[in-house]
Design a protein around this nucleic acid. Sequence first.
DNA 1: CTTCGGCTGACGG
DNA 2: CTAACGCCGTCAGCCGAAG
Length: 365
Amino acid sequence: MVTDHSVEGRIVALLDLDYFYAQVEQVRNPAIKGRPVVIVMPSIRENSGAVATCNYEARAMKIKSGMPLGLAKKLANENTVFINADKPYYEEVSQKVFDLVDFYCEKVEQVSIDEAYFELTNPLGYEKAKEVCEKIKKSILVDLGLTCSIGIGPNKLVAKMACGVKKPDGLFIVKASDAEQFIAKHKIGDLFGVGPKGEEIFKAHGIHLVGEIKTHEKRELIEWFKDAKGEQFYDFAFAIDNRPVEPNREKQQISKMMTLRQDSSSFEEIKTSIDFLADLVFKEATRLKKSFKTASIVIITDRFETITKSKTKAQKIENFDDLCNMEYDLLREYLHDSFSKVRRVGVKVSNFGEETGLQKKLFEF
DNA sequence: CTTCGGCTGACGG
DNA sequence: CTAACGCCGTCAGCCGAAG
């Protein structure tokens, strides 16, 4: 009944560009190939920032993404190259990559700047799926000089975990019949959706491997993680994952943040940043033809707590000054009832309406 | 009862 | 030299108010 050519299951692939930002920089400047390359998200402050990503040579020195820049510099050697992230350029390259993938497959869901799921269910079974992925890899390499890794499986979860097996420049397939076994042997912290907190909870219940989830009842998982996550983790243990591949997902929010030159409680100082950020956000919303009703301010305090305040209007917020004034009010609110200084500040808009480009039909008569 | 606004926290890249 | 620290996005869940 279950053959390679059966239509009874999906075939899903996850493509992940290898150490993406760093690889793009290596292509742009081949002279740095072979050296450790660290891509930095700098902040305005002296010697402050974080590692966005780094190549394998840098990883060999224990440098990791998310790491504070100061620490990365301690681990680095003379030979290490530090490059400030050039996000707009990486976005251009990313666009080219996934346009290429679109050429080979209609159902592509980009989930981040360097990752996309795509569905290869249609005719043909795993052998054909593999051939398509090989073509995609080849063509990304030939056209853009970039390597990527691809995982193939019966659903998103398995594809994602399969992708992690052979990296970089890998292609790894886990068929439906092997999926449960394959998932079971992973460390619990490596399961998609399990972060530091989740890992602690699992370990407190004696669970170290994904397969061990199956020794517990679904209701226990729900007690530990609440409805949604509890059910999902339980299903994951059996390699069950019904999340569809969804092309054309609409953005739900737009935000921009920045670190202040120094921690501050001064309205005027912080306002300067807000004006700058609101402008970027407003332009972006306009570019994407998104109207919005909610404006938020996001504050990271000097103690690294995050505080958000937001206001929703009954009508679309149409002009820039309205957005700014709302942001000022939110900032005043924050300054009024908080003790901590502001380290970083962000402006966010959400609660999008219909596309502003298209006129909609009115049925009121 | 359901829905909405406001907010937090966990997570992923 | 005693720690150190970006930015962007998604979703679930909780709470209180409103419908």
